[in-house]
Structures are given as structure tokens and as C-alpha cells.
């Protein structure tokens, strides 16, 4: 049986033992050194750097996502190897653009960095996927697509995750989506029961041999033409 070498966090960090941060100022705390490195490396594609409650926020241009993350992941002076979280924020003010937010950790340097990309108003909600760099992005991007309708280009399997695949009401965490849903409770119940989601299999699952025989003819035909996802 294989035994792994133990990976120590903070192996490249200068301070030996981190401590609980105390009395953090609202703004203008010292920034994470990676922010400066990013500005030097990417110049104008890093649009803004902020420090809020001790956390460094770096705004990047949405088209440079893949490049920036690849560099942060691979560069020996950064090594952001752990994608903590990926989500999006839509503000109540409709003029403020939707933001995609990544929370990154560098385990060797014990650093924490928040990257944001704003999708300008009027542009389609699209951004590059970081699936190839961090596999953790797999479900996180699917959830973000499910809840906000943001398309992650390059994700191999961008399906709805928490809602069922044929959910038609829209994207629940958008601000224009009412808290109680778009339809009345009775209509929602009727639709949910009609879906019978437990009896459903995705197209991909139906390619597994035995299930295929029980398909209706039109689905078989669509499958034979190479269709894989969606309904």
C-alpha cells in the first residue's frame, strides 16, 4: 500500500505560527503581497485592488480569468493551489454589474486572496471556466450557473445542479427572481409533481447499455445523433 509524503502547510511562509487577527480596520489594512505581484505581471488587466476587513480583493478583467488563475496556481512565488469558494454577487442596485467571486488559498504561503471579475451591463453572462486548473470548480461552477445563469466557457458538463434539469422558472438567486418563485404555489407543486424527478435520468446516464431499450423512440433518435445533455 502506498504511503504519501506528508504535505505541510505554511512550508514557504515566513512567519512561523499564525495568530488570530485582532482589531482589523475596515479599510487600508496591509494588502496581500500577491496583489502587487499581480499588478506588476498583468498591468492594466488588474483593474482595482481593495482591502476590506483585512481581506485583499483584486478586480481583474473578465477576459483574463484563465491567464491570471493559471499564473497564480503555477508561479512558485504564489502557489494558490486551493480554491476555497466560487460564487457570484448581484447587487440590489441594478446599475452595479454582476460580480464573479473566487476565494483562493495558498497552502504553502498561508495566504488568502479574493479575486473578482465584473461582467459589464448588457454583455452576456459568460466567463471562462477554471475547471482545468482547479477540479474543485466542477460543482461550484455548476451551482453558480444553476443559481445565477452565468455560463462558464470550457466547463465540460455545465448542467443544473441543485434544481432539476428541466426547471423553467429561471435562476433563483438573481435579484429579479421573487422570493416565492414566479408561479403560484399550486402551479409550482403541479409542475414539480409532473416532473417526477426521481424517475428521470440524464441523457448521459441513458447511454449506459440496458436502460436504452426502455426509451421512447424519439429519445433514441436524438441519442443516436450524438446529443448528450439537456432535455
Amino acid at each position: 500500500m502506498s504511503r504519501f509524503e506528508i504535505v505541510r502547510t505554511g512550508a514557504s511562509a515566513t512567519e512561523t505560527q499564525p495568530t488570530t487577527p485582532k482589531n482589523i480596520p475596515h479599510r487600508n489594512a496591509p494588502a496581500n503581497p500577491s496583489a502587487k505581484a499581480l499588478q506588476e505581471k498583468f498591468g492594466g488587466r488588474v483593474t482595482r485592488v481593495e482591502v476590506i476587513w483585512g481581506e485583499t480583493v483584486v478586480f481583474i478583467a473578465p477576459e483574463s480569468v484563465k491567464e491570471v488563475f493559471q499564473w497564480l496556481h503555477d508561479d512558485p512565488s504564489q502557489r494558490y493551489d486551493f480554491l476555497s469558494d466560487l460564487t457570484a454577487v448581484e447587487y440590489r442596485d441594478p446599475q452595479v454589474p454582476i460580480e464573479i467571486v473566487w476565494h483562493l488559498r495558498s497552502l504553502p504561503y498561508r495566504r488568502f486572496l479574493r479575486i473578482k471579475a465584473q461582467i459589464p451591463k448588457g454583455k452576456p453572462l459568460e466567463i471562462d471556466s477554471v475547471y482545468d486548473i482547479y477540479r474543485a470548480a466542477d460543482w461550484l461552477e455548476r451551482e453558480c450557473y444553476d443559481m445565477f445563469g452565468i455560463k462558464f466557457n470550457g466547463h465540460p458538463d455545465l448542467r443544473r445542479l441543485l434544481m432539476w434539469e428541466s426547471y423553467k422558472e429561471g435562476f433563483p438567486l438573481r435579484k429579479d427572481f421573487p422570493l416565492r418563485g414566479r408561479f403560484s404555489r399550486s402551479e409550482q407543486l403541479r409542475q414539480a409533481l409532473a416532473q417526477n424527478p426521481e424517475a428521470r435520468y440524464s441523457m448521459e446516464e441513458l447511454t449506459i447499455a440496458d436502460a436504452f431499450d426502455e426509451l421512447p423512440a424519439d429519445m433514441k433518435k436524438r441519442l443516436s445523433k450524438g446529443e448528450r445533455t439537456g432535455e
Partner: peptide, 29 residues
């Protein structure tokens, strides 16, 4: 690490990442 595992799942794989030690709060240090 790449799949984003954390907690006992990550530590069982030999990475000693524990938020209480690496990014402490509540004076855990």
C-alpha cells in the same frame, strides 16, 4: 488539494491543513 477537499478528508490524504492552525480564529493558536 486540487479537488478542493478539506477537513478530515484532506488530512487523511496527508495534507495538514486545518483552519484552526493555519488561519486561526477564537485564539485557537
Amino acid at each position: 488539494i486540487n479537488w478542493g477537499l478539506s477537513g478530515p478528508m484532506l488530512r487523511a490524504s496527508g495534507v495538514d491543513y486545518d483552519v484552526r492552525k493555519d488561519f486561526p480564529y477564537l485564539d485557537y493558536e
